[in-house]
Design a protein around this nucleic acid. Structure first.
Length: 274
DNA sequence: CTAACTCCCTGATAGC
DNA sequence: TGCTATCAGGGAGTTA
């Protein structure tokens, strides 16, 4: 389930093997993804064009083409993006294949098809509604205590839902929301309007620390995630609360509690998190 | 207006 | 063995 650290790990893995390559051909499956696959735009703007650079915004990968277009990929829940030698047999759930002039191909594989592929043509780049309304990057300068306090003022929703709301802050999904709140010592159910400045400072600090550490570990592999070379991450070994309901807190020995917030499993230590 | 719920989708797993 | 129910959850859309 790729969140910011997994998408960033993939981005870093794509750069050395993709930048400078020409995409000779784009091959599509006929399965539909979360959004319609823009086959005409892929042919017009991506096929035959060269990759200039690879960026990330939120959980979107932005592949900038020398045609002036941007290929925008979202991995959803189970999306994978990885390199294969040309001629590798097509696997189930391979939806896009980018055949490169380097003799390898980049494949987009997605079991549950919550992922998406979009092409921003040069004329679309002025007002890309893809990114409209997205909140702050948690590793960027806009993610700060004053920003979060202004967004949380007089709100009642639980802090965990707030951290997972892409209109507030992007890239944080269920795993990292749980881990960040453990690191910050704050219970996931706390109403955001009741948090004081010191607590927000800890949230900002914990977000950066947890996400940076997860990137350094190559992301978290629970079931599906692998990087662009097909390798698992190992941040799952560092998880303190996610998926550990009923286990013992590594800090204090209390039992990790599991609750459901907005339909999402949430884990916390009742003693370390207030 | 906010906040919570529904839907999309497949595979792993539990229970009978 | 084989069936059904449940769970995983990002993000868009809907409802209260």
């Amino acid at each position: 389930m790729p969140e910011l650290p997994e998408v960033e790990t993939i981005r870093r893995g794509l750069i050395p093997r993709l930048v400078g390559c020409r995409i000779n051909r784009v091959v599509l499956s006929n399965r539909k993804l979360r959004l319609p696959v823009p086959r005409v735009k892929l042919n017009r703007w991506v096929q035959g064009s060269q990759v200039k650079s690879v960026d990330r915004r939120a959980k979107y990968l932005l592949i900038n083409m020398d045609s002036g277009a941007v290929l925008v990929l979202h991995l959803g829940m189970t999306g994978r993006l990885a390199f294969f030698a040309n001629g590798t047999p097509r696997r189930t759930h391979d939806h896009l294949r980018f055949l490169l002039d380097s003799g390898v191909e980049l494949r987009f594989n997605d079991v549950r098809r919550f992922g998406s592929v979009q092409v921003l043509a040069p004329e679309d780049r002025k007002s890309p509604q893809v990114f409209a309304g997205l909140g702050a990057e948690p590793l960027g300068p806009d993610f700060s205590t004053p920003y979060l306090m202004s967004r949380a003022r007089n709100r009642t929703r639980p802090i965990k839902n707030f951290l997972m709301d892409a209109r507030v802050v992007v890239g944080i999904g269920n795993i990292y929301a749980n881990e960040i709140l453990f690191a910050a010592g704050i219970k996931p159910t706390r109403a955001v309007g009741t948090l004081r400045k010191a607590a927000w400072d800890r949230i900002v600090e914990a977000s950066r620390q947890v996400l940076e550490q997860a990137i350094a570990c190559g992301g978290t592999t629970i079931s599906d995630y692998v990087n662009s070379s097909g390798e698992a991450g190992y941040f799952q070994c560092e998880l303190k609360v996610y998926g550990r309901g009923g286990e013992v807190c590594q800090s204090c020995g209390s039992e990790i509690t599991r609750v459901v917030l907005s339909g999402r499993a949430s884990f916390y230590c009742p003693r370390c998190q207030k």
